[in-house]
Amino acid sequence: MALIDVQDLERTFVVRRKVDGGRRRLRDEVRAVHDLTFSVEAGEMVGYIGPNGAGKSTTIKMLTGILVPTAGHLRVAGLDPSKDRVALARRIGVVFGQRTTLWWDLPLRDSFALLQKMYRIPTERYRANLERFVELLDLRDQLDTPVRQLSLGQRMRGDITAALLHDPEILYLDEPTIGLDVVSKGRLREFLRALNAERGTTLVLTTHDLQDIEALCDRVIVIDHGTAVFDGPLPALHAQGGSTRTLVVDLVDEAPAIEVPGAVVRRVEGPRQWLSFPTEASAAPIVAAVAASYDVADLSIQEPDIEEVIRDLYSRGA
């Protein structure tokens, strides 16, 4: 059986709103999630993406047992999350990117000690895990610092350590790289990849950063308006969405629009030109063609932004 099994999951909320200047109240049912079906096998790394308000966090809340589904079938590690919440809690780790699970006034070390007690982690395993994560995530010097004095990146690494001390089978990460600098993002992704490779930890990741997905996930589930609109590997998403990458070329001198096969100029601004090309195409021949015919001062590639991919996908489907 799949580790995460979701069938026809539905969650509606009742919203009360006032009309006629507050004289009458109407009950509206809003379907935050509906007809959602997918499954995740052990060891997968899945990106769960979608625009704000699409139903991502509602889904994560149901998967972790915080929220009871309105209808549908839901099993995580063979358990019904809302019924067996406490039992499930031992087997999953959750990181909400914007909110820390650590205790604001306590040193990092004490927060971890509290979690050891809560999860009843045997001392030996706790020590070994702590040692390893502190090493990999470079937190040794911060162990005695109160959490409120940590930088955003340090806190995120602390939160990830906190979520992993009890060796969860599944790790849910909600926007883990938000607000982090490029170096920290890179290190974090490297760590998560290693974690998956070494321990087979299943990763479910919601993010706005497409590079997170590219670096980590073999598979992407796109949710929009409460239901999955795409489920498959990332390249297929690009193909289906028809999204493009952008090659930004800084020429030595101003020039008319560049003409090379496989790319189209979208914008020209002085010596700088923006060329778009299909996401699944390799940038190398285009770069080579540009460099062969023009004097290039600098080149860079912009990845398509996830919102844009989904917008494309959705406007096509509609």
Binding site: T64, R85, V86, R90, F96, R99, W103, Y119, R120
Partner: peptide
């Protein structure tokens, strides 16, 4: 309000025990 309760709900300790022992 702060979402702390969500955090607590993902821990394997009865909620009342967590709330009461917190701080």
């Amino acid at each position: 309000r702060t979402g702390r309760l969500d955090q607590m709900l993902t821990k394997p300790v009865p909620l009342l025990v967590q709330v009461c022992s917190d701080r």
